[in-house]
Design a binder for these strands. Sequence first.
DNA 1: ATTAGGG
DNA 2: CCCTAAT
Length: 676
Amino acid sequence: MVLQKRLDYGFNGYEAPAVPRATRTTRRRTKFQRRVQDDQMCAIDLLATLAGKFFFQDKGNPTMPSDASTDKDQHGFVEGCQDSDKPLKDELFYKQSFDNNHFPHFSSQTNKQNCPLNELQNHEIDVHLGNASVIISSCSSERLVSEKLVDAKCPNKMKNFTSKDILGSSGHPVVNCCKLDGESKTNKLKDKLHKLEKVSIDLGTKMCGFEDPPTEKPPTRISLGSKAKLSKYVDIFSYSSLPKGCDNVSAVRRDDDENFSGSTHPCTKTKSFMPVTGIHGRRLRKLLSCKYSKIAQELKNDTLASSDETLKPTYSSKKNYYKRQRSQMNIPFKKRKQFHCSSVSNSSGFIRSADIYYSPESDCGIPVLESPLGCRRGDPVNIRIKSFTVPELFIEIPETATVGSLKRTVMDAVTTVLGGGLHVGVVLQGKKVRDDSKTLLQAGISHDNQLDALGFTLEPNVSQRLPPLHASTSHSLIRYPSNPAVTHQRTRGISDMLIDHQVTSLGNHVESEHDSAPSLINKAKEKSTVDSKPLISFPEMSKDEKVMIPVVQKSKPSEILQRRIRRPFSVDEVEALIQSVEKLGTGRWRDVKCHAFGNVDHRTYVDLKDKWKTLVHTAGISPRQRRGEPVPQDLLDRVLKAQAYWSQHQTKQHHKTNLLDQGLPIGPGYVHGITA
DNA sequence: ATTAGGG
DNA sequence: CCCTAAT
C-alpha cells in the first residue's frame, strides 16, 4: 500500500488542494487514518478493477493456521497465493474418475498421494468463487462481466487432476468434485472436503484478462444437474448463506461427504460453504488471489504434459505472475480497459443480466453424477452468464468537498454495494423464482426450456450493514448525476467519471476547502420494498438508471489530512535561499528559514531543506533534464559551491560562533571570499 | 521542535 | 511535498 501511494505521488508533481496545513498534532492524529484510507482505496481500486465483483470468499476461517506453509502468511496474501500453488496442483486438481463405481474403494495409499489432506487444508485459502472482470462500461452503468464457470460433475472416483483435466478438453476449466477416503467419516474430513470443494470451484474459475474482450472470453458455464437445488445454485453467486430450510443437496457438492460417508448431511453443514461473516475483510485478499485461475491459464500456456510437470511450470511463472499482478494493480483506473457496454434495466432497478446461453450437450463430456439421493442422473443445464451489470453509482457531493472526501465517498459506496454482499435472484420468464429449495427442474430450469427466459438479479445487501437512512444524519446519499456526456464516455468507469466530475466541479478551486461532508441530500429517498427487506431500498430506476447508495460518512472529516498545495520556488526565492545557505550553511534550516523566509508562512524549514536538496540535484544534472522554471546557471553554480563548502565544514561547529541570536547572522569566511 | 534522509 | 527516525 505504501508503494501504491508513493507511485501515485511520484516525485515530480505534487497535487494537492490548497488547504491550510493541519497542525502537527492533527496530522499525527490523522496519520493512521490516512494510512487506513490508503489501504482502503487500494482495496477499492482492486475491487473496482482487478476483480470485479464476484470474488466470493470461501475461506471459512481466515485465521486458521496453515500448518506447514507458514511462509504463506509471512509473505502476505499475494505471496501466499502463490505459495499455494505448490500443493495446489495436487490438491485442487483432484478429480474423480469414473471407472469406479464406488469411490471409497481406491487404495488409501493412492489416495494420499493424490490428495493429501494436510495439503488441502493449507490451500483452502484465498479461494474465490467464480471470477469476474470489471467492465467499466461506457454506458450508464458499470458492468461486471463475470464469467463463472461452475461445472459440477460428480464422478465417483478420484484421480489425479492433470492439467488436461483442469482445462478440460474444451479448453475451459472445469470444476470437479473430489472424493477422499479413509478419514472421510470424520468430521474433520468433512470440513476438508468442504474446503476442497471450494477449491474445486475456484479452480474452475478462469481469470479473464482485462484486455480480453468479453466476447473472446471462453464462455463460462454453469452446469448443474437438473436435480441441483436452486439454493445452492444461487449460493454460488450470491455467496450468501444458504436459505433456511434448504436441502442438503447441492449441485456443487452433492457428491462429497454425502456420498462418501454414505450418509446425508443436514443443510446446516452446507452453510459452511458460504460464510457470510468476515467477507468484507477478506475480500481484498480474495481479490488478490485470483492467481488460481491465472495459474490455470498459465498451465495451459506452459503446455503441461503430466500432472507432475504441472508443478514446475507453475512455479516458474510465479514471479512473473506476481509482477503482472502487481503492475496491474497499479494501473490507474483510466488505464484499465473496459469492454462491454450493454445494460438492461429491470424493475427492481438493481440488476441485470444476462445473456444466458444454453447448451444441451455437456461439452466437457463429463457425465453428471447421480444425485446424492440416489436419484437418476440429471441432465445438465449449462448456463452462461455473460455479464452482470451493476447499477450506476449516483453520487452527489458538494463542490467544496475535497477529492479525498470524494474518494472516500466512492469507496464507501462501492464497499457498501460489494462489501455488503449481493443477493442473487433467479428470474425465470420474468418471474422471480423464490423457492430456493426447488430443483432447477422443478423451477422450470432445464435444458428443455428456453433459457433465454432465465435471468439473474443482483441485489445489494446493505441492509444488514447499514442502519436505515433516516436513522442517522451521518449518512449521506451518494449520487452521481447521470448525464449523457458522462455515460457515453468510453473506456471509463465509475471512478473515472467520478474523478472527472470532481475535477470539473472543483476545477481550479483546488484551494477551496478542506473536507466537507457530502450533503445529506435525498436521505428520504428511502422507500420500503415489500420483497427485499433491505432497509435501504433502491428506488426504481428511471430511464437514466441511477442508484442511490447510502454511505456512512466519516465522523470527523475536518481531521482528514490534506496535502499542501504545490508551490514551486521562484527564482527569487531560490536566490534568497542560496544566499542564506551560503551564509549559514546547510544544516541550520530553521535559521535559514528565519533569515530568508522569516515572513513567508508556507515555506517551512523542511521545505527549504528539501528545496536545497533539489537544487543540488538540479545543479548536478544536465540542463535538459531540468524541469520547471529554469534556475539561472549562476545560481546553480553557487549552490554547488556552497554545498561543497559546507559539506567540508561542519555546520554545527559554526553554529556556536555565529551571532544569529542577535539577529546579526555572521557569514562564514566562505561567503565573503566568494561573493565579495 | 529540528535535522537528515528516503520516498 | 510527505514521512520518519533521531536528535
